[in-house]
Nucleic acid binder design. Structure first.
Length: 892
RNA sequence: GGGCGAUUAGCUCAGUUGGUUAGAGCGCCACGUUGACAUCGUGGAGGUCAGUGGUUCAAAUCCACUAUCGCCCA
């Protein structure tokens, strides 16, 4: 084995071996039931980012852990066709060729997109492989595959037939750049500083019957005597106004109510009405009503039976309804109208105004509310099912606090606009006959001659919502569906709880009659080391591929798995990745040491006839780790479990037991055999514990460690198929842990004294240990105390008590146990006094605190007996230490 | 406007149902290449656990309020 671990030559070959050996497929002979995860399908156009690295780390961790535990694990991989993203990408490609989607036509465009997908669509899968993802690539799916398309079509027809999908003309979120409707979720709101224009509309009365001069003449409103002022942030929508609304019963407007205002530019007469919606405090108190371009106005319009006038084309230019402004782009029209309003004396004032503006999540442009005919899912009945599944505990959300978020959204859900005016996606399975009849067809139905299919496609999330079961063959009753559905855990980022998780719950519960998974585990977002969102413009994006190249996949995975807690955003600190890389190197070198001592799998069966205190201690600690990590993993506390494994392997096994083993391996043949067995048992077991976190390094060194010399390893000889350690409570040894703790404390104290007195590391010192009632135990540990404390064994005395304490010595006082290091020539009595006084102060405070506690009758009376007892024991130890320190100070 | 999260060592974070002296990594100081590892070892310094009040024998942990930062929903 090389001196340092190199991940580069290790990772790819191991992965290839695992994949080609079929280790990722569910084992038909697995002793435990299925454990299934559907991958959150990455965009087929996507490139690996830390979000992917995060979900792969956690899902692969769960899958490898459950696989080793004997579950029949299946992790279904796949990709998402990402309608808007992919279409945008291919359109850009066409533009670079001097053509466009419209010019080449739908068929050619789709051919080009599939061509693109075939060429580049496999990249993300290989990047997931680099992360070590042990998903079953044989079962890989793509949302636009034949099978999944059948699922989508079946789902659509079923929902339509059940009255849960309908077509209608409603106000939708329109994206003018993409020229498609998007769902409410795809609109983000940004607070912006805008202008609010106060515009007065002339009112028809006995003195004035309407404009006598053309718009733009400057005399349009000449002669008007009454006005009503409205405020708007979107002056161009004036062209679509069909009323002015005032607060009911507002005296300011009582004489105007029921009259007609004259719409600027178009001279349309519009009624002045009263509606509860109007806030009398806001602006002038009156508001313009544009039912076809504003959600609230739409509702007002419905209540008052107002006409809905759409003034926009699909590209957000003004249509024929806009009179003189026809053909102008929406913001150019705004500018022009404002100018004209001013010329006509209708502009009262312009104020700065703060408002939240709807932005397209995809293209960043301002979303335009637009009246348009679209397809919708009636969500209420579906949401009720999805709500019940969580309320009744059939599906649990981790962390639990997200259940509240889920409830709130589901309870207030609105219908879901699922049609998109795109070409790349699942085409809506609806055909129209020449006579206008509409046919909704299932996957095996052929449209009749002359039928024309609906041109729109479905929201990508509609197909994603079927993912847990569509990937297993639904609606066909396939063996996979029967065996692996419902799935077990849905693991994904909390940022897509509504987009994806909620939709899977709704569609899954309704279409399959069962919740699609029993647990939803939501991880946090990965941010940069100072908590900033990673973004290209900031230049703080960490590329996981580069990290894996430099530090290894295990380092990245271990960092992501252990840097935080469930559901919490994680600030990725590059130094932590480096530390994780060092951890891999530590594992490598521990194994290198163990192997260099000739330890192999055959040692596992050595008779444990000479278990030393240290052996019993490390075995107890190992079993405690197994038991603790089992509890933590079952509770989805992956971070804490991983940290504990690290601390055990480095802080206890490497820092202490390996050093102990060096001594014990110099002992009798019997002791050597026992030590080798313990070294093997604990190291090999800890490697298995860690394998789900850091699969590559653990497999690599496990192969070295478990290789039987002279024998060909079995084809299935992989740590990923080995049993996961479960720990045995019967092998816990609290006495050994307490005893070793004392020995270790003594050794550290000796080292501390050596360091304080600047004793050269190479120098072996003399020591007298006064063990009191622990003398027997300590005597048995003499060799280890000597070696690890760098005390000359010949000059190490361990006695029960001592008559004359050496003066020219540094003293160690542990409470019940003392030690003296006669450091000839080095001891400065004054310095020693200062040192001991400092300790004395601490001991006094310690004793005082404990005495106060135990003097408190309510503590003794109300605290549990074991807590009180522990306090009594500690007090006794502290008192002994205090007495010794006082004595020592008196002596010198 | 409603809701959620965070605030612990210089930095990044742990701290499982309240229970000894609150931990880790990095950074810092001192020493060290002894045959696993300098991607390391040994020893050390460093924290009024954001603040106030409360519950409790006991609070970083539970409750209330406040402050700051961040997120979600409307």
């Amino acid at each position: 084995m090389a001196k340092a671990y190199e991940h580069q030559p290790v990772e790819r070959p191991l992965y290839t071996w695992w994949e080609q050996s079929g280790f990722f497929a569910p084992r038909p002979d697995a002793p435990k039931p299925p454990f299934v995860i559907s991958i959150p399908p990455p965009n087929v156009t996507g490139e690996l980012h830390l979000g992917h690295a995060m979900f792969v780390t956690i899902e692969d961790l769960m899958i490898r852990w459950r696989r080793m535990q004997g579950y029949q694990t299946l992790w279904v991989p796949g990709t998402d066709h990402a309608g808007i993203a992919t279409q945008t990408l291919v359109e850009k490609l066409l533009r670079s060729e001097g053509t466009s989607r419209e010019q080449v036509g739908r068929e050619e465009f789709l051919r080009r997109t599939w061509e693109w997908k075939a060429k580049y669509g496999g990249e993300i899968q290989n990047q997931l492989r680099r992360l070590g993802a042990s998903c079953d690539w044989e079962r890989e799916r793509f949302t636009l595959d034949e099978g999944l398309s059948r699922s989508v079509q079946t789902a659509f027809k079923r929902l339509y037939d059940d009255g849960l999908i309908y077509k209608g003309t409603y106000l939708v979120n329109w994206s003018p750049n993409l020229q498609t409707a998007v769902s409410d979720l795809e609109v983000e709101f940004e607070t912006r500083q805008v202008s609010i224009w106060h515009v007065r509309y002339p009112v028809i009365n006995a003195d004035w019957a309407g404009p006598q001069h053309p718009w733009g003449s400057g005399r349009w409103a000449e002669g008007a005597t009454q006005w009503i002022t409205v405020a708007t942030t979107r002056p161009e929508t004036i062209l679509g106004d069909t009323a002015v609304a005032t607060p009911p019963g507002d005296p300011r407007f009582s004489d105007l109510l029921g009259r007609s205002a004259v719409l600027p530019a178009l001279a349309r007469h519009i009624p002045i009405i009263a509606d509860e919606y109007v806030d009398p405090e806001f602006g002038s108190g009156a508001v313009k009503i544009t039912p076809a371009h504003d959600k609230n106005d739409y509702e007002v319009g419905k209540r008052h039976n107002l006409p809905q006038i759409n003034i926009l084309n699909k590209d957000a230019t003004i249509n024929a309804e806009g009179g003189p402004y026809q053909g102008m782009e929406r913001f150019a029209a705004r500018k022009a109208i404002v100018q004209d309003l001013e010329r006509e004396g209708l502009l009262v004032k312009v104020d700065p105004h703060t408002m939240s503006v709807g932005i397209s999540q995809r293209s960043g442009e301002i979303i335009e509310p637009l009246l348009s005919e679209q397809w919708f899912v009636k969500t209420r009945p579906l949401a009720d099912l999805a709500l019940a599944a969580v309320r009744e505990g059939r599906t649990k959300i981790i962390p639990e606090r997200f259940e509240k978020v889920y409830y709130h959204w589901m309870e207030n859900i609105e219908d879901w606009c699922i049609s998109r005016q795109l070409w790349w996606g699942h085409r809506i399975p609806v055909w129209y006959m020449p006579d206008g009849t509409m046919l909704v067809l299932g996957p095996d139905e052929t449209p009749p001659e002359g039928a024309v299919q609906d041109p729109d496609v479905l929201d990508t999330w509609f197909s994603s919502g079927l993912w847990p079961f569509s990937t297993l063959g639904w609606p066909e009753q396939t063996p996979d569906l029967a065996t692996y559905y419902p799935t077990s855990v849905m693991e994904t980022g909390y940022d897509i709880i509504f987009f994806w998780v909620a939709r899977m719950m709704m569609l899954g519960c309704y279409l399959t009659g069962t919740e699609p998974f029993h647990t939803i585990y939501l991880h946090g977002l990965v941010r940069d080391e100072h908590g900033r969102k990673m973004s290209k413009s900031y230049g703080n994006v960490v590329n996981p591929l580069e990290v894996m190249d430099a530090q290894g996949t295990d380092a990245l995975r271990y960092t992501l798995a252990t840097s935080g807690t469930p559901g919490q955003d994680l600030n990725l600190n590059p130094q932590r990745i480096e530390a994780a890389r060092n951890f891999a190197n530590k594992i490598w070198n521990i194994t290198r040491f163990v192997i260099s001592k000739g330890v192999r799998s055959s040692d596992a069966n050595n008779p444990l006839t000479m278990l030393s205190l240290a052996d019993r201690w490390i075995l107890s600690r190992y079993h405690r780790l197994c038991l603790d990590s089992d509890r933590l993993l079952e509770g989805y506390n992956f971070g804490e479990a991983g940290r504990q494994m690290h601390d055990f392997l480095w802080g206890e096994f490497a820092d202490w037991y390996v050093e102990i083993a060096k001594v014990q391996l110099e002992g009798s043949a019997e002791q050597q055999a026992t030590t080798r067995a313990v070294l093997y048992t604990v190291l090999e077991g800890t490697l298995r514990l860690l394998h789900p976190y850091i699969p590559f390094i653990t497999e690599e060194v496990w192969q070295y460690l478990t290789r039987v010399e002279g024998q060909e390893a079995a084809a299935s000889h992989s740590i990923m198929l080995a049993a996961y350690p479960s720990g045995d409570a019967a092998l816990l040894n609290p006495q050994a842990e307490t005893d070793w703790d004392l020995v270790q404390t003594l050794i550290v104290a000796i080292r501390n004294i050596r360091s304080e007195y600047k004793v050269e590391p190479a120098k072996w010192v003399a020591a007298t240990v006064v063990g009191g009632e622990r003398v027997t135990m300590l005597r048995e540990q003499a060799a280890l105390i000597a070696r690890l404390g760098r005390v000359d064994l010949q000059r190490l005395e361990i006695v029960e008590s001592i008559a004359a304490k050496p003066t020219q010595s540094a003293a160690i006082v542990l409470g019940g146990v003392e030690a003296y290091l006669p450091l000839a020539g080095l001891i400065d009595l004054e310095a020693e006094r200062v040192r001991l006084r400092k300790e004395l102060e601490q001991a006094e405070a310690d004793v005082a605190r404990r005495e106060a506690k135990l003097d408190n009758p309510s503590f003794v009376g109300k605290a549990p007996a074991n807590v009180v007892q522990r306090e009594r024991d500690s007090l006794e130890t502290a008192r002994a230490a205090l007495a010794s320190l006082r004595e020592r100070l008196a002596e010198i």
